[in-house]
């Protein structure tokens, strides 16, 4: 993951759907187009839904990797409005 410059990181392991995606959107809203957000999330529903919803909104998923503890880290590049 070192090849990307990460502008902001959020942890959404403490919330449930749909607040997972809501918090991701709020964090992305603070970024400029092209900047990268790292999202730390649980497996299951968040890992299924958050990347898909981000793609539907036109953002670019750069990496989506599972950690040893089962959680996921997502790198997403913000699209323009």
């Amino acid at each position: 993951m070192a090849e990307y410059k990460i502008t902001d990181t959020i942890d959404i392991t403490d919330v449930n759907c749909p607040i997972t995606f809501v918090k991701t959107k709020v964090a992305l809203d603070e970024l400029d187009e092209g900047e990268i957000l790292k999202v730390h999330m649980n497996s299951g529903e968040p890992a299924q839904n958050v990347p898909r919803s981000l793609k539907e909104e036109g953002h670019e998923i750069l990496e989506f990797t599972q950690n040893d503890d089962g959680t996921y880290d997502l790198l997403v590049r913000k699209a323009g409005d």
Binding site: V22, K25, V26, D81
Partner: peptide
């Protein structure tokens, strides 16, 4: 507010802005 308006914020056409 994030919770109250979550169903709006997740809409692409509404969103945070």
């Amino acid at each position: 507010q994030l919770e109250r308006y979550s169903r709006h914020i997740i809409l692409k056409e509404v969103g945070v802005k």
